[in-house]
């Protein structure tokens, strides 16, 4: 599997490859460097100081964002909602993926087809109905409403992904477990899940980032300020008087930090997990 394959020797990168890597990195972070630069400029300097290195750097924007705004609260909300969504998605999708990967049963193909179809529904099509449904059921403007919607939104992708992953895990282990008299559920939880960890980690990261970035659902399902997610909260800097660039960019950078940390921590697992699941066609 992935781990063993990686030990194979590939040609190290040459100067051309490094040049390409640097170019790609610049394309990727160029706009963010500009955001970084702007975040250290005072409101007056934002439009007048057009250099990439602020001539009079200030921490004012960060102070305001961290201590005088609701951004920390939004961050907390996003972490809670994204975290809960990841958990719920993994539980539902793991069960479903395991069932469809390991058992033959009537309606399996139809169920898989159904789940695939729902991922084709444009979010914009169902925002309004979802809103009314959420209000009626009493989950509008609550974490729960967001979590349920995001979970349902993520389950199809993650289920298909994990199904591919389970198919790469040999069944011999499970058979051995069954011979020892373990129940199907125990086999799944104690023998298969530990092997599926990389796949679960990769799925978790993808689902987490999705929730982190989403704007439309977050803006539709929640309206009180103390439950707002970070992607919507950034809209506070788009005022009638124009964009508060310094504070907006500072807020953006503050919100990137946890994601970068998450990525660096998860990088190995993410790639390894995906490589096992991704190619299983």
């Amino acid at each position: 599997m992935a781990e063993s394959i990686r030990t194979g020797r590939r040609k190290p990168a040459g100067p051309l490859a490094y040049a390409a890597l640097v170019a790609a990195s610049l394309f990727a972070v160029g706009p963010l460097l500009w955001a970084l630069s702007t975040s250290f400029k005072s409101p007056d300097a934002v439009l007048t100081d057009t250099s990439w290195i602020p001539s009079a750097p200030t921490l004012e924007n960060y102070t305001i964002v961290l201590f005088e705004s609701q951004v920390p609260r939004y961050l907390f909300n996003s972490v809670v909602v994204a975290g809960a969504t990841v958990l719920a998605t993994l539980v539902l999708a793991t069960l479903g993926a395991y069932a469809t990967a390991r058992f033959r049963f009537r309606g399996r193909g139809a169920s898989l087809f159904f789940i695939l179809m729902t991922s084709m529904i444009p979010g914009i099509a169902i925002l309004v109905p979802l809103y009314f449904l959420a209000v009626e059921v009493g989950v509008y403007d609550s974490y729960l409403g967001l979590i349920v919607v995001y979970t349902a939104w993520q389950v199809p992708t993650v289920l298909w992904m994990l199904r591919g992953f389970f198919q790469t895990i040999p069944t011999s282990l499970e058979e051995a477990g069954r011979i020892d008299g373990a129940s199907d559920l125990r086999v799944m939880v104690q023998l298969v899940l530990p092997l599926a960890k990389p796949g679960l980690a990769a799925a978790a990261v993808i689902a987490f980032v999705y929730v982190w970035n989403d704007y439309l659902i977050a803006a539709t399902m929640v309206s009180s300020d103390d439950k707002r997610l970070v992607s919507v909260g950034l809209y506070n800097y788009l005022s009638q008087y124009g964009i508060e660039w310094g504070q907006l960019t500072a807020a953006v950078l503050v919100t990137i930090v946890p994601m970068v940390v998450l990525f660096v921590l998860m990088e190995k697992r993410l790639v390894a997990g995906l490589s096992a699941g991704a190619t299983k066609g």
Binding site: E136, G138, Y140
Partner: peptide
């Protein structure tokens, strides 16, 4: 109203009602 239809459909499905409560009352 859309609301009424939503209510009927939601009641028919009656599914996430079990796990949801509170929230949103303004």
């Amino acid at each position: 109203t859309l609301l009424r239809r939503a209510a009927v459909a939601a009641a028919a499905l009656g599914l996430i009602a079990a796990c949801g409560s509170g929230g949103g009352s303004t």
